[in-house]
Design a protein around this nucleic acid. Sequence first.
DNA 1: GCAACGCTTTGGTATAGACCAGAATTCCTG
DNA 2: CAGGAATTCTGGTCTATACCAAAGCGTTGC
Lengths: 240, 240
Amino acid sequence: MTERAVVKAVEVVVWLRTLIHERTLLTGMRLPSERVISEQLQTSRVTTREALKMLETQGLIYRSNRRGWFVTPPRINYDPGRAMFFMEYVAEQGFKPFSHQISKKRVLADTALASLLSIEEGDSLVELKRVRGADNRPVYVETILLPERRLPGIYDHDLAHSVTTVLKEEYNKPCMNVELEVISSSLDKDAAEVLQAPVGYTSVEIHRVSRDAQGALVEYDVEHWRHDALKLKVEFNIRS
Amino acid sequence: MTERAVVKAVEVVVWLRTLIHERTLLTGMRLPSERVISEQLQTSRVTTREALKMLETQGLIYRSNRRGWFVTPPRINYDPGRAMFFMEYVAEQGFKPFSHQISKKRVLADTALASLLSIEEGDSLVELKRVRGADNRPVYVETILLPERRLPGIYDHDLAHSVTTVLKEEYNKPCMNVELEVISSSLDKDAAEVLQAPVGYTSVEIHRVSRDAQGALVEYDVEHWRHDALKLKVEFNIRS
DNA sequence: GCAACGCTTTGGTATAGACCAGAATTCCTG
DNA sequence: CAGGAATTCTGGTCTATACCAAAGCGTTGC
């Protein structure tokens, strides 16, 4: 045995994981407090916290600021290729979805944004921010940018519910083509606050560029998801 | 000011991030040791480590077992929709790619696997494991399953380089349709070892089901990526 | 020239203790 | 009994210290 017989933090991980798997701890339930776990398994609080953070990375548990650690609910299946709305597909999966608009304003495209979206520098964009979640738990924040020149009067439409619907029905511009970019990242202060997560919390960042049938950009969207709340599904045909 | 003026760990984060952004620390370079940083910023090693872990979550730095912390190289763009091979598209991005086969064997489909892949229980599958990376840094491990019944003699082909090519040229079964499932997760012991990362390291898990033009499954693939090495890109048309 | 050994440095793991901020609860008072 | 105040409980941050295992390096001896 060159290795230490056990790593204490892993011992704690295994203990808690067992409790969850054998359903002694159910989805949404609070775990025993850090101090109680430490005492129970004869370890220090630092070690216990390390174990909890491992389980958090695995997505098995999450914390709510100064309230405790909880068993993570199932992930939301998200398929950006389906022409459906958040409220619909989340409800379809048995959750109670919600969606709140945080802000709506005009911004001007700077150089970087202009080239990214292939529009003119200085063009006006409608910026929409919102949070969405399920069962009272916020799961992602998103910022949507809409080029006003291509979508005249878009600012005055009700965009709180479904931007896609407005684009399709009011502008006759259904989004036909989507470019996704997905990376694993971490929440900055603002996003963390909205998602009630700690700063630096692991996140999945999704950038989405949507184009109409003519190939013109009609929507640019950046989403920051809690990493443990998302199962991304995509289906497509190979371009050869 | 109800809040503490500064969080020490964040102070360390900012200090290091600045060094990286102003290119005092370049891609691939080793950071000062934890003890040196602690002394320099008048903080404890525990706090310094917390800061380092935050930067790791952000994907800015990574550690190599007991050797130190290093500045993360750029992410690899991975587009599963392009009919290209790892070696090609990685080289195209200016990296030196490598690919090593870990194992190749036959396995029998259990109930779960059979229903997942829509094949018969007990059917024989060829299981291929390999690691791939760039510039001497392993970035993902994958396990490929190939149904032998649909691909007679597949076991005896050279699969070390490109499974896609073999499927296309030897079996006349180019993969036409792909179903992706992406979640953020963490590395188990085996994967961590191969990727030279700590157990529990944040990872991106990609499941890929590929079908031929007739809709028959020809390849099932599970990939575990270092979270900081991947930028996933997908392009597709909306199914309405 | 190089292999073997041993010291130094690095991160990895763990402990004990302290204080803070905010959430939840209890208790007390009008 | 309602509303506000005090208390308790929870995680959040930080310090100081200790020992271990492996990587890296330098020295020594052939």
